[in-house]
Write a protein that binds this DNA or RNA. Structure first.
Length: 379
DNA sequence: ATCCTCGGAAACTAAAGACT
DNA sequence: GTCTTTAGTTTCCGAGGATG
């Protein structure tokens, strides 16, 4: 999967929405009530909220023949461009009913729960490679009438005296506390949020996005920005003195660090985004939308070939033999475990796309909706 | 549709090495 | 001594064939 989203923003101009003109959103009304999907964004900037945009690529299948079908809810483009001077702090909703804008990565499924194993499987289950339980006889043995022979196997004693090379210490941060790494890519460097900004909450599938340089929150509803500010943009405000932090975290849905998307007034004083490590967009590699190994894409074991034949009772060739007292099996432990892991990773390494520019990514391109409405359903 | 087999990834865990 | 890393060993998921 996920070979598609690859083109996301960079190819935004070729999304189905091509040609539609983003509509300027001068000032956002009261944000919709937060209904519990995500905690309210941290920090002093205004809450993230999105507007439902009809997805022109989806039409009412029940429309009478020939009749011009209308886009139907809830098939909306999920996330329009953020308001001026604002970047998404949270990932887009993943609730059912929210398909995703063309070219955008699909929602991340909840991470697969870790597999739990019993301490010791009974001999029957072990030889059948099936799930066992603590009970004796175990459930499976009972089911198949093997209760009589349902007994614990015996663990082989571990080899001793095997010398190892020097250990490579994993670098842990100075403070000793676990690094709060929300990046999805492997071996990626965690980029610290600007001073004063919180880390993303645990469990967020996508990286955070922090306010761009020069961002100033909109005035309270109903109020006007003071006169004289260009494009109606507010002058620097007293309290949120946002640090000059040009980098933002990569976000798969397009954030614009420096320049607003089409139709939005330019943000005064916003420099072109550059990440601290030089590559615009922070940490492009993998990171965003990496489905974290989840079932979704991984499939490392796909294409595995089976050459078995019912009758061949050769007991699991490459594996440790179990039934019977036999033991020996490749004493030099290259059991390929490590390699397997490595191999499994590195799928989909799409650099997250930044709409650091007017054609602010697919979302922006897709933005052609009518008057913005708060998106309540899934926020 | 269900059962069976079994490759291989994930989980577990203890030994070896590093650190205090 | 404790903590961390490494890797040996086991569990069991899940694909795919066999069977009814």
């Amino acid at each position: 999967m996920s070979s598609e989203p690859a083109k996301s923003a960079s190819s935004s101009s070729s999304t189905p929405q091509e040609g539609t003109q983003p509509q300027a959103v001068p000032h956002y009304p009261q944000p919709p009530p937060y209904n519990g999907h995500y905690p309210p964004p941290p920090g002093p900037y205004p809450p993230f909220y999105a507007y439902p945009i009809p997805d022109p690529s989806h039409h009412d299948p029940n429309a009478p023949n020939g009749a011009p079908s209308q886009p139907v809810a809830p098939f909306f483009m999920a996330v329009p461009p953020p308001p001026p001077g604002m970047v998404y702090a949270y990932p887009m909703p993943t609730a059912p009913g929210y398909p995703f804008a063309a070219g955008l990565p699909p929602p991340q499924p909840a991470p697969k729960p870790k597999r739990k194993q019993v301490k010791m499987a009974c001999t029957n289950c072990a030889s059948a490679c099936k799930r066992c339980d603590e009970a004796r006889p175990c459930e499976r043995c009972v089911k198949y009438g093997l209760a009589e022979t349902c007994v614990d196997g015996v663990r082989k004693e571990r080899k001793k005296g095997i010398k190892r090379g020097p250990y490579k210490r994993k670098n842990r941060n100075a403070s000793g506390e676990p690094s709060n790494d929300y990046s999805t890519g492997e071996g990626e460097q965690q980029v610290a949020p600007p001073p004063g900004y919180p880390m993303p909450p645990e469990g967020y599938p996508f990286p955070f996005v922090y306010p761009p340089y020069g961002y100033v929150p909109a005035p309270p509803d109903g109020q006007q920005h003071p006169e004289g500010s260009p494009n109606g943009a507010p002058p620097p405000m007293p309290h949120p003195v946002y640090p000059t932090y040009p980098a933002i975290y990569p976000h798969p849905y397009g954030a614009y660090p420096g320049a607003p998307p089409m139709g939005y007034p330019p943000m005064p004083g916003a420099p072109v985004a550059t990440s601290p490590n030089g590559n615009a967009g922070g940490k492009p590699d993998s990171s965003a939308a990496s489905p974290t190994n989840g079932s979704v894409s991984a499939e490392p074991s796909k294409g595995k070939k089976r050459s078995r034949g019912k009758g061949d009772d050769s007991s699991r060739p490459g594996k440790k033999s179990r039934d019977g007292p036999s033991e020996e099996q490749q004493p030099n432990g290259d059991n390929g475990v490590v390699g397997g892991e490595a191999a499994g990773k590195e799928q989909q390494t799409q650099p997250p796309t930044f709409a650091a520019h007017p054609e602010a990514g697919p979302a922006a391109a897709a933005f052609s909706g009518p008057e913005p409405r708060p998106l309540m359903a899934t926020m």
